[in-house]
Design a protein around this nucleic acid. Sequence first.
DNA 1: CGGAAGATTTCT
DNA 2: GAAATCTTCCGA
Length: 202
Amino acid sequence: MLERDFYLKNGIDLARALIGKVLVHETPEGILKGRIVETEAYMGAVDAAAHSYRGKPSGRVNVQYGTGGYAYIYLIYGMHCCMNVVANEKNVPEAVLIRALEPVAGVALMKKLRKTESVKALCSGPGKLCEAMRITREQYGFDLCERPLYLEEAEEKREPRIGVTARVNVDYAGEAARYPWRFVELESPYLSKRIKPGELMG
DNA sequence: CGGAAGATTTCT
DNA sequence: GAAATCTTCCGA
């Protein structure tokens, strides 16, 4: 299990460091695991695309103002949940959106939860992976340094080749929509979107 | 207090 | 291309 120290870095560094780590959820019906292949950093005070932009500690963003290593989960479009990992020290509202996973364990249960047999479609998007991992707002504020929801190193230690692009669906954020804060494992077939030619920024 | 829009997914 | 569906934010 990754410990607190791992999360006490800025959101951009954490987003990159999370690629290749494994998200684990121990549910009553079985253990679910997915290897992180796509993330996005949301940088609070300086990021017009972030929920915590120019905000205060209250409501749903409250947990972002706490210490890193906790779960920030929110409902989007009235029907899907998205999971973030809170980054950095107390009172620095930064977070990393988990956008896609490669299924590692509990695939049969994931198929049941997602109502599909397609393994590639199980976790290839922020809303999809929450459904597959049985993550809802019930897990809001959970400490990722203890069970049942936590991160660990991959057993198979492939070194991921990481690509950088602009973030997805944040056009409303003006200049911030073009910041290079999305990280992907380049060869992964489990991304939320295929990388287009010329899209890579770093 | 009302309306608009959203860090999405799925079906047509 | 549009619907589904509800929370949050912003202007009046």
